[in-house]
Write a protein that binds this DNA or RNA. Structure first.
Lengths: 130, 130
DNA sequence: CAGGATCCTTGAGGATACTG
DNA sequence: CAGTATCCTCAAGGATCCTG
C-alpha cells in the first residue's frame, strides 16, 4: 500500500473539479442562449423558444429542467387554459453574470486575436472557431 | 425581402458568440486538465500524459494541437534521440488564468450550494454534478 | 401552450496497434 | 519518445408525432 501520487501540486489539481462544474453549467449547445434570454427577462416557454432560434421543444424543455436542477432558473405554472408557464432566473442564477462577463471579455479578445492573425493567412478553419 | 429579426435586444444576443468562443477553448474532457498541467510548468508530452490521468496519447496529441491552433500553447521540438518535444503556455495562454479563476470561484460556491442542499434530501443525482 | 415519447444521426472520445 | 492510423462506442442533440 503506497502513497497515492499526491506529490507537489496535487492540491492545485483540485481546482479542476470546481472549474469543470462551472463549465458544465454552461455547456451544451443551448444553455448559454437560454440563460441570456432569461437574463433579458424572457419568461414563457414559447417566448424563450422564439428567442433561441433553432432549438426544439424537446431540448428547451430538457435544458430548462437542467437549469432548474442547478437552481439557476425558477419555474412557475399558472392555472390558465391552456396552461401558462413562466421561467425566471433565480437570484442565484444572476450570479452567473460575472462569470459570463469574464468569458465575454476574454472571448471577444480571442476572436480579434485569432481572426486578426489567421484571416491574413488562410480562409479560417471552420472547425476552429464557430 | 423583409428585415431580419433585429428587434429590441439582438445586439445583446451578440454576446453569445464570444462567450461560446471562450467556452469552446476550454471545452471537452481534457482541455482544462492539460491547461492546468501546463500552467504548473509541465512540458514534455509524456510528462503531461502522466499529469493528466486517463488521457490517451491520441487525445493528448489532438488537444495539444487544438490549443496550439488557439495560440495558447507553444510547441518546440528538440533534435535529440529519441526526439524530445516541449510544450509551454504562451504569454497569451496565461491570460486564461483570469477566466479560469472566475470559473473556479463560481464553481466552488456552486458545489457548496448544490451539495449542501441536496445531500440532505437524496443521494445526489450522479448525472447532475460530476 | 408546454411539453413528453420515440427513433435516428453524428461526433467526441476510447481501445488498440503501429512508427520515425 | 512522441506521436499516427483504425476501428468502435456512446451520448448529445435532431426529427417527428402525440397530449393534457
Amino acid at each position: 500500500m503506497e502513497k497515492l501520487d499526491k506529490s507537489n501540486h496535487s492540491q492545485c489539481t483540485g481546482i479542476i473539479r470546481p472549474v469543470q462544474d462551472a463549465l458544465d453549467v454552461l455547456n451544451g449547445k443551448w444553455k448559454l442562449p437560454i440563460i441570456v434570454a432569461l437574463l433579458h427577462g424572457y419568461k414563457r416557454f414559447s417566448e424563450i423558444s422564439r428567442q433561441v432560434p433553432g432549438i426544439t421543444d424537446r431540448m428547451l424543455s430538457k435544458e430548462l429542467r437542467d437549469l432548474e436542477l442547478n437552481q439557476l432558473v425558477k419555474r412557475k405554472v399558472y392555472d390558465t387554459f391552456p396552461v401558462t408557464v413562466e421561467y425566471t432566473m433565480t437570484q442565484y442564477g444572476e450570479t452567473l453574470k460575472d462569470v459570463i462577463n469574464a468569458l465575454h471579455i476574454w472571448g471577444e479578445n480571442h476572436r480579434r486575436k485569432i481572426f486578426g492573425d489567421e484571416l491574413l493567412k488562410q480562409p479560417v478553419d471552420k472547425d476552429h472557431l464557430g
